[in-house]
Amino acid sequence: MKHFFIQMVCIIIMLIITSTLFSCNAKRNGFSFANDSIITKEISANNDISDSILNIMMNANRVQANLYVSSMDTIREIASKNNLNREDMGALKLSLLLSEIHETDAIVYGRFLPKVSFLFSKGKEACIIEVDFGLNQLKVILINSKLTFTIYNDILLKETVLLFPNDDFLPFLLKQQK
């Protein structure tokens, strides 16, 4: 009972933060997470992505999104958004923060075939995220490293469906996850 009560309080706090962010977004027509590092930390409590990487993502003023059709021997780009508008960028950043993501060094017995990639950049700082929604894995690529994470909810998938509504693979996966 006590455990349930704590869970409920956490959910309510999370909802308040989320709704505050969305209302800010509506008012400001896009927002910067760099101004609100406390909120960023609160939201990303369930997220193993390190602060330094999150900072690059959240401070990015330019995000490029690419959609792919991959097969085992080729990866072909089929759609691209070179510069997401402020609303899409804000929503994508929020989706990443709200996603439950855990870093893993365990090996999965399926081929990682990215469906979408996001390039976050600001000045000389940049990082790329590649996502395979079939395996529910995400790779963060920096200049010298590549980290693998497992995604536990469908928030990022939903956002990607909104960004690329004409793809048929993503809605199928969304339906399966429900």
Binding site: S71, Y109, G110
Partner: peptide, 11 residues
Amino acid sequence: AMCCNSFTQGL
């Protein structure tokens, strides 16, 4: 079979 049964693009 010991392998993934996840949805794979291009398959």
